[in-house]
Amino acid sequence: MSTYPVEVTQTLGIPFKQFEDQIRKDLGAIGIENIVLVIFSDSNHPELKVIESISGRINLSACINKHLQKYLSNSLMQKCKEICQYEDKFVEQQVFDHNQLTNISNNLKAYMVRDCVTYGFQFTFIMHSLRDLNSAEMDKLRTICDIATAWANSWSAHHKLLHIWDNLVSSSGRMMQPDLTPSEGDVLKLILQGWSSTEVANIRQVSKETVRSQIKSILNKSQCNSQNQLIACYGHYKWLGSAPFESI
């Protein structure tokens, strides 16, 4: 499922390429030709959309993209967790079989499952086949749908985490990054490198009183009560590592 974001596959700590390859293999083994996987809170603006030919035999991307809103609207009328089987009427034209190099005349079979996942997201999973699945294949399909739903819960939770984290980092950066003069910026860098105020004065060739005054100004601008707190804040927010200090 090539459109999964890379950061998701890495951050969740699961070998998703191996996972995805196994799911493709299992779906293909029971006769599924094409899948549609959508996670959304607003059906007009899906957060994640995957449309993929599993077998390489047929390609429904153009048709599904054209009617995606209808697919999602239909899914919202379906009970959660139940696999609904129907003939796909949204495919208006004959489907071309890339293996046999011929048109397929019979109606496509669609299998759809919907579920409510974490943080208010909806998950719709649609699978197309050229034939009806038998009882054993349906049992396998239910297991795959359970796995896909669990994955959708993980994805939506991770998506929410990144959104909240971005807000925290941006708001923290606005609150915590002080507007320092060039001299104060130089003093702060030396403090963060572990130099004492006396050593900073020697390095900068200024009086201790000047350095103390600059440190007091830095603490005031950064809303820190002590040099230890200042160093702790730098370690947490990584001011110098993320962006240069604003100078006035």
Rank of each mutant, 00 (worst) to 15 (best):
Q229K: 06
T102L: 06
T102I: 07
C116W: 04
G173I: 05
Q85S: 15
V6N: 03
Y4H: 12
G241I: 05
N44Y: 12
M1H: 07
V169L: 14
T149E: 13
S75E: 07
I58G: 05
L133N: 04
H163N: 12
I147V: 15
F40T: 03
F125H: 13
S43H: 07
P244F: 08
I218D: 00
K208Q: 13
I218K: 00
L141V: 02
S213V: 04
N202Q: 02
V206Y: 07
K25M: 00
H163Y: 11
I32M: 08
I51D: 11
S242V: 15
K238E: 07
A243M: 14
Q100A: 14
A201V: 02
L188D: 07
C116M: 09
H67R: 15
K109E: 11
V38H: 01
P182L: 09
Q94T: 06
L133W: 03
R142H: 12
T3K: 13
S61F: 05
A232H: 02
A201M: 01
N134Q: 12
A232G: 01
F40E: 06
L133P: 00
E246W: 02
L219W: 01
S75N: 04
C116N: 12
E209Y: 03
L230C: 04
S105A: 03
Q214V: 01
K89V: 14
I215V: 14
N106P: 08
S242M: 13
H45Q: 06
C145S: 15
N44C: 05
Y119C: 06
I64Y: 12
G28S: 12
W155K: 03
I104W: 09
R142F: 09
I32F: 10
Y111E: 03
A157C: 09
K238T: 03
S226L: 08
Y71K: 04
I248E: 14
L108F: 06
S129T: 06
V113H: 02
R24C: 12
K89A: 14
F90V: 02
E92G: 07
D21C: 05
F125P: 05
L240Q: 08
S53M: 01
W239A: 00
R114I: 09
E7S: 13
S207V: 11
D115L: 02
T198Q: 09
P46A: 02
I51K: 07
A201D: 00
S156T: 10
I51W: 07
G56A: 05
C63I: 14
F40V: 03
M112F: 02
P178I: 12
Q85C: 15
N59M: 02
M176K: 10
C224L: 09
L60F: 03
L133C: 05
Q193R: 14
Q193I: 01
A150S: 11
H98I: 04
H236F: 08
S197G: 01
P244N: 14
S171H: 10
L72F: 11
Q177A: 11
S222P: 07
V113F: 03
V117A: 01
L188F: 13
